[in-house]
Design a protein around this nucleic acid. Structure first.
Lengths: 235, 235
DNA sequence: CGAGGGTTTGAAGTGCATCAAATAGTGTGG
DNA sequence: CCACACTATTTGATGCACTTCAAACCCTCG
């Protein structure tokens, strides 16, 4: 992966890209590794080169709430810049991953000196905001099966042909919490989705013939019509 | 209200403020007025000078999901800049309000020419993102009564002394939908909150003696401890 | 005073959570 | 390559929170 090819770094200066190259540190991480905790002082921001990372927070009661689950190509930890250099969530590796860390100072410098980059980041942030908005809507309006269906639709490759085959990218338990439901509910809701739409399920592989099977069941109670203007892409 | 005093316009150039002054259009709006609809092309962004504005979206099924309810001093419609000049939500006046509209072009120009302003807006957007994050957490983890309690806490003035008196800023029905619940649930959950915490309720006025009455019931199942670092302020 | 919306109350239903236990799947060491 | 250990997933039974539908009540404002 070439950093300069990530949408996030579009518009960044030569100097910044060079600084990234020279100061980025790559490491392989095992499942379960915690990179930082909510409230930790932030010296670095991170880029997922491969694998999956979970962002989450915990309450005093011990309940966990998942903020996001990030695929390769994602940036995280950068929001500390706007939170007094403190991470507003915890980050944990959930699949074997390669993670790059970059001193957040470089990002700050680039933002302060390169308006084109700042604009890109603003637009990136606006996109995220929009996604969250839709997330809130989904949680309020869609039932468990519909949320799963919508999640599956986001996994469909754009250039699919014929039978659509999807592999769930990480544990069902994690998908469940990502979608704000219990594992048991996920299991039952997926069965219900199968009944309602005729999708075929074998373990972590899911098959169906046309998008319509899912969209007709899931998208009628959403304010953005499929294909959701690419707002919701997972990877 | 002086525009230059709004946090949103901190860092903006003299020229921009002048352009705002000269091109802003003020209008009084009655309850129920719809300013624009989700999907409308956006020529203007707006500033709430007084009153309250509801941002929302509707699904094909006719269900409505409330995105935000904005107090005086808020900006809205500006996100269209990042959505191909199309509004990503509808806006409706919910209390008699004074609304300023400004051609979005001026905002765009200022963003493209003034990095200090772009940075401010980035930070503003990051704040919004954080609030949404917490919103999602609350919906997932808090029960109806706790969400109401948290909402009340956000209405408490910072310089309160002695008995704390709160006036609900708009209809209970609207608060209910803002918090993602039915009016009936709101009514019952508020009674429950009264039982649990000893707050006193008279119509739209709520009284209690110490914040602790509410915080001990509401904040234990939240990842941000009260006073939530001012993240959640409503006005 | 009366109309209409906002609010509360009651009764019944639904969806998801929880607890418990069985089953499937995966990786490990022998 | 197999048996075991451990985790992920499914299934069943039950409970609870919130919703829904219906109706009464209350409040405000013309």
């Amino acid at each position: 992966m070439n950093l300069s090819k990530l949408a996030f770094f579009e518009g960044s200066s030569e100097g910044f890209l060079k600084a990234l190259d020279e100061n980025a540190h790559m490491k392989k991480c095992k499942k379960g590794k915690v990179l930082f905790l909510h409230g930790d002082p932030a010296e670095y921001f991170y880029i997922v080169k491969s694998g999956w990372v979970k962002l989450f927070r915990e309450t005093l009661d011990g309940a966990q709430s998942i903020s996001d689950i990030l695929p390769a190509g994602s940036i995280f930890g950068e929001t500390a810049l706007f939170e007094n250099d403190t991470h507003p969530y915890s980050a944990e590796i959930i699949e074997p991953s390669e993670i790059m860390s970059v001193p957040i100072k470089f990002l700050k410098d680039e933002l302060e000196s390169n308006n084109a980059f700042t604009l890109k980041m603003l637009s990136y942030m606006a996109r995220h905001r929009r996604r969250q908005d839709i997330e809130i809507e989904h949680r309020a309006i869609q039932n468990a099966s519909q949320r799963i269906g919508c999640f599956l639709l986001r996994l469909v490759k754009k250039d699919h042909e014929g039978t659509i085959i999807i592999h769930l990218p990480y544990d069902k338990t994690l998908i469940a919490s990502r979608l704000g439901m219990q594992p048991e509910t996920f299991s039952r809701a997926l069965s219900k989705l199968k009944e309602k739409t005729g999708i075929r399920i074998k373990g972590a592989t899911i098959e169906f013939d046309t998008l319509e099977q899912l969209t007709s069941y899931c998208c009628s109670c959403c304010s953005s019509e499929y294909p959701c203007k690419d707002l919701l892409a997972v990877e």
